[in-house]
Write a protein that binds this DNA or RNA. Sequence first.
DNA 1: CTTGACAAAATCGTATACGATTATACAATT
DNA 2: AATTGTATAATCGTATACGATTTTGTCAAG
Lengths: 227, 227
Amino acid sequence: MVLRNFLPAIEARVQSTPDLVAQALREAILHGFYDAGQPLRQDEIAATLQVSKIPVREALRRLEAEGLVVFYANRGAMVAPLRPDEAQEIAEIRIALETLALRLALPKLTPRDLRHARGILEDLDGERDSARWGALNRDFHQCLYAPAQRPQLLALITTQHRRFDRYMRVVLAAMQHQTQSQAEHHALLDACERRDGAIAVHVLEEHIAGAVRLLVEQLPPEPARLL
Amino acid sequence: MVLRNFLPAIEARVQSTPDLVAQALREAILHGFYDAGQPLRQDEIAATLQVSKIPVREALRRLEAEGLVVFYANRGAMVAPLRPDEAQEIAEIRIALETLALRLALPKLTPRDLRHARGILEDLDGERDSARWGALNRDFHQCLYAPAQRPQLLALITTQHRRFDRYMRVVLAAMQHQTQSQAEHHALLDACERRDGAIAVHVLEEHIAGAVRLLVEQLPPEPARLL
DNA sequence: CTTGACAAAATCGTATACGATTATACAATT
DNA sequence: AATTGTATAATCGTATACGATTTTGTCAAG
């Protein structure tokens, strides 16, 4: 063990300005404060957050990489449009990544992890705000995957899950799905407690696939226009 | 058919300056022009490429999102360090994503696709430069996945594959692996031609898992230092 | 020779400024 | 009235400039 190993993540000492701006814009997009396709005016954002355009632009570039924002040459950034086929694709990616994470995490899940997950499930029951519901939902899934100890994989999952949640907002209004989703959450957690990997993975697959199925039913067949 | 369908991706009309800078830096890192851990001086890069620091910083942010670059507060960007455990994790992610892509692509593979793949395999035989070998290798894999018609998935795969190739550089010097790899490529392509999904997926899994196995043997157990 | 303090240089991060591009409003024309 | 052309405003993209932070170099003290 060397001294260097004691200092906890140099890169995270301070949250950089672009980080903070990205966080704010991410929240705003996920909360629906900005609609799909809406332009994100750099001057306006900079003025609101009391910074210049440079950190705003860097934040927008990050969100572009996360798939929440699209850049058009000389026309700036706008909130990424919603397209049902994209939601379908994200669901497939999520299933591939999350079943992997779950399989890796399952043998390492502690009773503490399971209690934590149960706690989030209870919070989830009371939540009405769709953005906070989405955040809790991500937390629930993440805390089942975290014991896998795969930081890269978990980061990818979070990014894709967030993207997916933009689509789910549309569906979440229908309270029916929340109860359905909660039932699946409980089934998933139960399988984890029994260490039944095959069932857990299967429930997770159906959980995501069912969400996207509901999604494409609700969403208009014609995508939100790009222009 | 409407007029809009004729314009090929508005956002791609011109390659933006940050795009070009990112491309150049990506190539430089993949070619080993910059070593792992090496600082990327913004002024220097800006001067060399005849632009200001702003587009350079945006390019670095993109590369950060791609996992090729790490930012440290007030110390700028440096080439992401190489850590064997990270290579292992990327390999797991690649297997999950690429087996998915392959399964989706397999039923849609045309004879033309297969000929194209064979062509790349031949080019691969003659290639000595490890960076170009890596690019051809990515091309080979991509052209087997492309018929899946999953742009998001393919983009993710490319990013992870590029990241993985930084580790493979170390191993590629050993010519032995190239012949091993080529043998697996042929086995993969043969299985695709026979539309044998189970075998193809299995060969792909072993192809990636074998590479990372060789990798952790070659690489020093102690990671390249972060500081 | 090593350690610590300080000054100088290098580098970062971002605010400001400005040319270039795009969007908007409105007058001119058919 | 609809369409075209033109001036104006809004916005983008980036070069420049500068304070803040980090790194490097120097030298005196131990």
